[in-house]
Design a protein around this nucleic acid. Structure first.
Length: 875
RNA sequence: GGGAGCUUAGCUCAGUUGGUUCAGAGCACCUGCCUUACAAGCAGGGGGUCACUGGUUCGAGUCCAGUAGUUCCCACCA
């Protein structure tokens, strides 16, 4: 048999993925088993696989594959999100490249282009997930704009409207002038931005030569000022009460008002009030009944209401108006000033607060069960530290602006009755017409009398139904799938979207299913580079995911992603992580090569073989138990590390060396059978992490019947027992390591055989493992003695002493070594003795702890006696 | 401005209700090895006043308070 010394993942990954698909290994349908369900956080339909996706989906796949092997009916539902703003931006750009504006071609034609784009690029990311090994049930692939899904989104909007939770109103919203749409508070990122603080003086009416000076960072909004505010108790300005001032440049007359909001300490203590362009000013405007002058168009240029600079961009105008103010003598001072500016998460355009008519969802009532569920542990956040954040948000929840001024998405099912201020809300145009007729009492109305709202719903107003609508839970509430799979088990996502998405899914779950949407929410960190910078296109610090898979193998990448990403912590990515993953795969591969290369003989297993096999069995069970515990606490990195060490250290470094026949000799067929069994057991535990290589070796170790896949095998279980062989072999391996160290220090080559003399009160134990010691240490003889043998060096393993002949013994060095050990042990003994001499310790500490201290004392005393004895013999 | 978290080896992190030789793991590092599965490897090794200060306790990496540094969330003052 000729197997390459290097594992080449490219040769086998596609082969096994296809085999799994062909055998429908990922498919799930309701049956008598207990379900285990995960719904994927749907990536943007036009997205491509980046590092964050790889981490997110690797975790999900590990969980799903493990549960599948544990006998659950595992179902991982994949799909994509229509991502209204992001996708619309891409489509608009694509059309712009062709010289087309969406407004020229109209809604219908535009949507055709958008769907065409979706058909072409949508779902690329799902194909990429397959490269990673994701075991999703692809037959269940959902899209948030699927016909059935859309129906449920509209149904929910209508229902919330009927319940009185949805309302329409003029509000100050975050306006994205680039996408020309409102965005939610959560989609605004505040960043410190350098700017200027402009001190501008306004002439006071009827007081020749007198001015008030205000400070602003946004001089272009001066055009929309409708008042200047001062603090009512500010004595510096009492004389201004009731006066009017003139807006610079345009000389519009505006009142001076008094309001507590004004901070007397800031700037000059005078505040210009622009209700249309600042949320606080807006509130002041309401209190004082001020008019709002909207001086900005929806694209961020100055509107006609501004009177000057009409049609020019806000940032251009900021510079121009500064100059104009200076020339007019109104600019008193311009100082550099850093202030916080909101930017759109999607387009990175500076957000404008803007008054507009929008649809809102009142969150007060609907969010209550969702808060309770998390506080009472009905839904668990992992790690738990996120509960605080969640609680704070849910207790201070604001109304949700549901409408977006876009076309790509679910058009709001509100219909305006032309010529009136009335509207109706209904799932279909026909039903809307009926409602409109009833509302107006005009039975002769036709569709021509209605106009549907032009806006679409916020993307999250569809994805919040994901755990329900992927199973058609709203459109077909009694179907088998929703009854069987809902509530789902685990949700794996990033904390960034805890409020956007997770909280809202919980709200929708309770509102529409009367039950939580999932039991556990596993929040993983963000993938960053090794300087803790977020991976981003502009920094160019993100590796190409697919190249990574190609270079290191999907298994290697999966392991690399999981090695250093405990729950809630960011993953600091560097290539060495995936290298480690690849090296691990190679290690396993070579263990496979070794086992495959052995010739067999009919001889029965030797005693040493039997010991090795018994030990490895116990070790695997022990690890299985430990790993199970890690999984129950979502300690996925720890679970991986346990299986890594089981495979590499225990299986390869110790076990295979224990049973390995001398060069050129065959192995007992009986032993080989067991070795293969144990290899398989370890592979099963490893499979969820490294699905491809484990499947390949599974089929390489034995001939398998069709449809016999490791991914469908049973996960090994442990029971927490610690058979005595575990601790005994631990002592033996400790002894082996000590002798190896001794050899290295004395410059004894491993090729030279040695004689080993053992002084111990547990001769039987060493007798049992004589074969192992001899095999690992290349001994020519092993003998038990009662005192040090002449011409030997000594070393101690716990309370046992080993002597090894040396050509020349440096007695002084030997003495010094022993003296050092005596010193250390005496120090240790004194600490224990002090502790035990402390009456309060003996009285208060649990018996178990005291007993352990006593044992430590006895062991140390025994060891000291041993050492002193040896020293005496050296003379 | 308000709140939460974090600080343990060069790096990334474990350390579960305070108590075993508890100060750990992986990687990195150092030394010796191309030993007939694997140099993407083997064997061995060094390395930390558990941020600082104080307190509670028989006993503190673990609990409490304060200090410093750091990260995140929320709000946003023109």
């Amino acid at each position: 048999m000729n197997i390459s010394t290097k594992y080449s993942p490219a040769d086998i990954e596609d082969k096994w993925y296809q085999a799994w698909l062909d055998a429908k290994c990922f498919a799930s349908s309701p049956d008598e088993r207990e379900p285990y369900t995960i719904v994927i956080p749907p990536p943007n339909v036009t997205g491509i696989l980046h590092m964050g996706h790889m981490l997110n989906n690797t975790i999900q796949d590990v969980l799903v594959r493990r549960k599948r092997m544990e006998g659950y009916n595992a179902c991982w539902v994949p799909g994509t999100d229509h991502a209204s703003i992001a996708t619309e931006a891409k489509v608009v750009n694509m059309l712009a490249d062709q010289g087309i504006s969406k407004f020229d071609i109209g809604r219908k034609k535009y949507l055709e282009h958008a769907f065409e784009w979706k058909e072409k690029y949508g779902g690329i990311i799902l194909q990429q997930l397959k490269k990673l090994g994701a075991s999703c049930d692809w037959d269940r692939t959902s899209f948030t704009m699927d016909e059935d899904y859309s129906k449920s989104v509209i149904q929910v909007f209508c229902d919330l409207y009927d319940k009185g939770h949805v309302y329409r109103g003029i509000r100050m919203v975050n306006w994205d002038p680039s996408a020309k749409t409102a965005v939610s508070d959560e989609e605004v990122i505040h960043k410190d931005t350098p700017g200027n603080l402009y001190h501008v003086r306004y002439a006071i009416k009827d007081m020749e030569g007198e001015f008030v000076t205000i400070a602003t960072t946004r001089p272009e909004t001066i055009l929309g000022d409708t008042a200047v505010a001062i603090h009512p108790e500010d004595e510096r300005y009492t004389y201004l009460h009731g006066k009017k001032v003139l807006v610079p440049l345009i000389n519009r007359e505006i009142p001076i008002i008094t309001d507590d909001y004004v901070d007397r300490e800031f700037g000059t203590g005078c505040l210009k009030v622009t209700p249309a362009h600042d949320i606080n000013d807006y509130e002041i405007g309401i209190r004082h009944n001020l008019p709002s002058i909207d001086v900005l168009n929806e694209d961020g240029t100055i509107s006609e209401a501004g009177e000057m600079f009409i049609g020019e961009d806000r940032f251009v105008v900021r510079k121009k108006i500064s100059k104009a103010l200076e020339e007019a003598g109104n600019l008193v001072e311009k100082e550099p000033y850093n202030h916080s500016v909101g930017y759109s998460e999607r387009t990175d355009a500076a957000i404008e607060p803007r008054l507009s008519m929008q649809w809102f969802l009142n969150m007060q009532e609907v969010s209550k069960p969702a808060l309770k569920a998390v506080m009472e542990g009905e839904i668990e956040l992992i790690p738990g530290k996120f509960i605080n954040t969640y609680k704070y948000w849910m207790e201070n929840v604001r109304d949700w602006c549901l409408s977006r001024q876009l076309w790509w998405g679910h058009q709001i099912p509100a219909y305006y009755i032309k010529g009136t201020n009335e509207h109706v809300v209904a799932p279909t145009a026909e039903e809307a017409l009926e409602k409109a007729k009833a509302k107006t009492g005009n039975a002769s109305m036709t569709m021509d009398n209605l106009a549907q709202d032009e806006d679409v719903l916020d993307t999250w107003a569809s994805s919040w139904l994901w755990p329900i609508s992927t199973f058609r839970g709203l459109t077909d509430p009694d179907n088998e799938d929703i009854k069987y799979y809902y509530p789902t088990n685990d949700l794996v996502t990033a904390p960034e979207i805890l409020f956007f998405w997770v909280a809202r899914m919980i709200i929708a779950g309770y509102e529409y299913m009367g039950e939580k949407p999932f039991k556990n929410v596993y929040l993983h960190g963000i993938v960053r580079d090794d300087k803790r910078r977020k991976m981003s296109k502009s920094l160019g610090n993100s590796p190409d995911s697919l190249e990574l898979i190609e270079k290191f193998g999907a298994d290697g990448v999966r392991v690399g992603m999981l090695l250093a990403s405990p729950a809630g912590n960011d993953l600091l990515y560097k290539d060495s992580l995936v290298e480690q993953g690849r090296n691990f795969a190679n290690k396993i591969w070579n263990a496979f090569r070794l086992v495959k290369g052995w010739e067999t003989s009919d001889t029965p297993s030797s005693d040493t073989d039997k010991i090795a096999i018994e030990w490895m069995k116990a070790k695997i069970k022990d690890a299985a138990f430990e790993i199970d515990d890690h999984f129950s606490k979502f300690r996925i990195s720890d679970a991986l590390m346990s299986v890594y060490k089981l495979k590499w250290d225990d299986f390869c470094s110790w076990f295979l060396e224990m049973v390995k026949p001398p060069y050129g000799e065959p192995i007992s067929a009986e032993t080989l059978e067991s070795v293969i069994d144990l290899f398989e057991e370890a592979l099963k535990i490893l499979h969820p992490f490294m699905p491809f290589i484990t499947e390949e070796i599974w089929h390489g170790l034995r001939d398998r019947e069709n449809g016999n896949f490791i991914m469908l095998s049973d996960m090994p279980k442990g029971n927490g027992d610690k058979p005595v062989i575990l601790s005994e072999i631990e002592l033996i391996t400790e002894g082996i390591t000590a002798v190896r160290n001794f050899r290295a220090q004395k410059g004894l080559s491993p090729k030279e055989s040695i004689e080993l003399y053992i002084k111990s009160d547990q001769k039987a134990l060493f007798e049992t493992y004589r074969g192992l010691l001899s095999k690992f240490l290349n001994t020519s003889k092993i003998e038990f003695v009662d005192e040090q043998v002449d011409g030997t060096g000594s070393l101690r393993v716990r309370t046992h002493e080993f002597f090894i002949p040396l050509g020349e013994v440096d007695v002084e060095a030997e003495k010094e070594k022993i003296l050092k050990e005596i010193e250390y042990n005496e120090g240790f003994l004194i600490k224990i003795q002090k502790k035990l001499a402390n009456e309060r310790f003996v009285q208060n500490a649990p018996e178990k702890v005291v007993a352990l201290e006593r044992k430590k004392q006895a062991d140390t005393e025994a060891k000291l006696a041993l050492l002193k004895d040896s020293l005496a013999q050296l003379g």
